[in-house]
């Protein structure tokens, strides 16, 4: 029972990380019509900036905003220099140009920080673990991640459903020409929105830093999972991103936790572990295939 609880919390924790990435990706796609492969690079930039500042100053409280800021700045620069010119292009051009950006960012990071992964310590005040409901001990840091992720989800909901900016964003997603005709500076709105998406990705990277190793290529691993989330949830839909992220987080975590045990009863230990690792890596893609068979537009499509 306590193991199941713990794995469920792990699933939620992976889910909120994926949600932060998927929300930015799906917003940018839903409103600007741009598919941004380099979204994973922003995640990586957030994590690296955080790791670098933490290593220099030893302060998590400085490193945290530094990571967010770096990702935000990189995102705005990316929009201003490259992505802005891609709005009117077809998806193929967008994919290839942002693919070029990934090559650039990955190699630049290798030049700056080397190939060795960086490790970041969990800050003192989030060290240790607490008892939840008398059933399971769970690390405070991961709980904090879940809390920050959920708070961000609520914040995004309020931003989009309740504020003037959110109204413009929704209007822009429905009919951007009309919003422009009403005198809204749509370019500024886009740049702003791209920056917000980038900071969400950066936030995910910053939070993942202390529990993962910070290394080149971390962005693409998570990017492809994020695509799965977005497809499952329905492209352009924040609600869908949330549902999809939790589903993917749960399925991935549960398969990794329980599949080896199940398979070990059927075959020899090492073989079972290898097979289980492969099957759990494939699990979320199978989930996606099933969702597509039933609902090709995703679980919570944005329009209609």
């Amino acid at each position: 029972m306590s193991l199941l609880m713990e794995q469920a919390l792990n699933g939620v924790q992976l889910g909120v990380t994926l949600f932060l990435l998927a929300a930015g990706l799906t917003l940018i796609f839903g409103i600007m019509g741009v598919i941004n492969l380099a979204h994973g690079s922003l995640y990586m930039i957030g994590a690296y900036a955080m790791a670098a500042v933490a290593a220099k100053t030893g302060s998590f409280l400085l490193a945290f905003p530094a990571g967010l800021l770096a990702a935000g700045i990189a995102g705005v620069a990316m929009e201003y220099l490259v992505v802005r010119r891609l709005y009117a292009r077809d998806h193929l051009d967008q994919v290839l140009a942002t693919f070029g950006l990934i090559l650039f960012f990955n190699q630049l990071t290798t030049i700056l920080f080397g190939r060795q992964p960086l490790f970041v310590e969990i800050p003192d005040f989030l060290e240790g673990s607490v008892m939840i409901g008398g059933i399971v001990r769970y690390p405070v840091y991961r709980l904090a991640m879940i809390a920050v992720g959920l708070a961000t989800a609520i914040g995004l909901y309020v931003l989009i459903a309740r504020t003037r900016l959110g109204m413009l964003i929704r209007a822009g997603a429905t009919n951007r020409e009309m919003v422009r005709a009403l005198g809204v500076d749509i370019r500024l709105l886009y740049t702003l929105l791209f920056g917000v998406g980038a900071m969400l990705a950066g936030l995910a990277g910053v939070m993942a830093g202390p529990i993962l190793s910070v290394q080149v290529g971390m962005g693409e691993q998570v990017l492809i999972l994020t695509f799965v989330v977005v497809v499952i949830g329905g492209i352009g839909s924040i609600r869908g991103a949330f549902i999809g992220a939790l589903a993917v987080g749960m399925v991935d975590t549960m398969l990794r936790a329980y599949l080896p045990g199940v398979l070990r009863q059927l075959m020899a230990g090492p073989d079972a572990d290898a097979l289980a690792a492969g099957l759990s890596a494939m699990g979320v893609y199978m989930l996606m295939a099933i969702v597509l068979l039933v609902k090709p537009q995703g679980l919570a499509p944005a329009h209609g």
Binding site: V82, L96, A97, G100, L101, L103, F105, L108, I111
Partner: peptide, 13 residues
Amino acid sequence: QVILGPLLVLMIL
């Protein structure tokens, strides 16, 4: 790749 990447971006743009 740090050269090839921007070359690709320029080519597409």
